[in-house]
Write a protein that binds this DNA or RNA. Structure first.
Lengths: 184, 184
DNA sequence: ACGGAGGTGTGATGTATATCACTTTTAAAT
DNA sequence: ATTTAAAAGTGATATACATCACACCTCCGT
């Protein structure tokens, strides 16, 4: 499990044993059951999470009560309400388990310590942020340029594992179409 | 002009004069005329740009030749085809001037040097990347949750200056609706 | 001063997708 | 094993929006 996290980080920057020990000291682990909330709207968001096993959905609920999926997170993914996390303001999103899930938790302070004291980790987070931004930009383009069917096909091609594990009604809420349309 | 850049950076991290001199040495400046391309699809993207004055559009052109606007950039904004920049692959987007524009250019190497040799700048870029990601995520949500009219109203409220300076047909291409729909 | 390009408004029509209502299937819970 | 809830398919109807076609207007360059 530690090994899994270490490999994840070392995909971007090699570490010494001492460095990894220092990093690991900033993390705690936690287990959640299916349907459990990790973050609820209004919560104070203390942590960013890295998924060891399981599956999460990050959701925005609009005024009319409709749910929209900002993103899914499975093994090896980071997730949180990052706006709330970085600005230390109440959550506007909720983070909920679609399966029993185990995560590494990195506190806001831990994040600051890692960035301040280990330049390698700041580099790591910079890479993650850059690629996260690029992924978001690609998704914007996909929403601007393609219709529902095409977006679904893209998703199946890109993340077949996700399509297997997630109910179609949720995929619809991620792609921005109604459940019924997706089914046809 | 240097002062303008310095203030921009110091909004996030204070600098000594020596540090700023070092930073500035990594930049060059360049002027472009209205309608000129800074990046064209297929180009090798050597630089990220910071807008001193003027206005840019970052555009994706789909198979059918239709233009979709990834983003606009005005004074004080960074812009580039970041995917091409960070991965050093050919541009899939184009960057074009909507007005006469002057920019600071930061080369890929310069970016690396700044990150490696000045931790403060790595912190600066980390902040920018994080907030860029969050802005993109908000835009995704706005595309998922609201209809054309609402998105337009949001934009007017958020960036009235932009709405003034940009033709409506381009705002439409940014919001993901047709020019005609926007006009009604 | 004139011609052309770019920008904008408006009608008529077509289409993708939302919404509502209902059924069937599958999976979870006691 | 039986009950209950969640997921998935399907028809009928409504609607937001795209598309096409055209008129008008205002810059800008020569």
């Amino acid at each position: 499990m530690q090994q899994q996290l270490r490999e994840h980080i070392e995909k971007i920057i090699p570490l010494t044993d001492e460095e990894f020990d220092f990093i690991l000291a900033q993390f705690t682990t936690k287990k959640f059951k299916k349907h459990q909330y990790i973050i609820q709207e209004g919560d104070n968001v203390k942590y960013a999470y890295w998924v060891i096993s399981g599956l999460l959905k990050l959701v925005y609920t609009d005024n009319s009560g409709k749910q929209h999926i900002v993103s899914f997170a499975m093994e090896d993914w980071w997730e949180s309400d990052y706006y709330a996390f970085h600005t230390q303001t109440p959550a506007t999103l909720s983070l909920e388990c679609l399966e029993d899930t185990e995560v590494y938790c990195l506190s806001y302070e831990g994040y600051g310590i890692l960035c301040d004291q280990l330049q390698k980790m700041e580099r790591f987070f910079l890479q993650k942020a850059n690629f996260g931004f690029l992924a978001a930009q690609r998704r914007i383009l996909s929403l601007l340029t393609t219709d529902a069917k095409e977006r679904y096909e893209q998703l199946v091609k890109q993340s077949p594992a996700l399509v297997q594990r997630v109910p179609k009604s949720l995929l619809a809420a991620y792609l921005g179409v109604s459940r019924e349309t997706l089914s046809r």
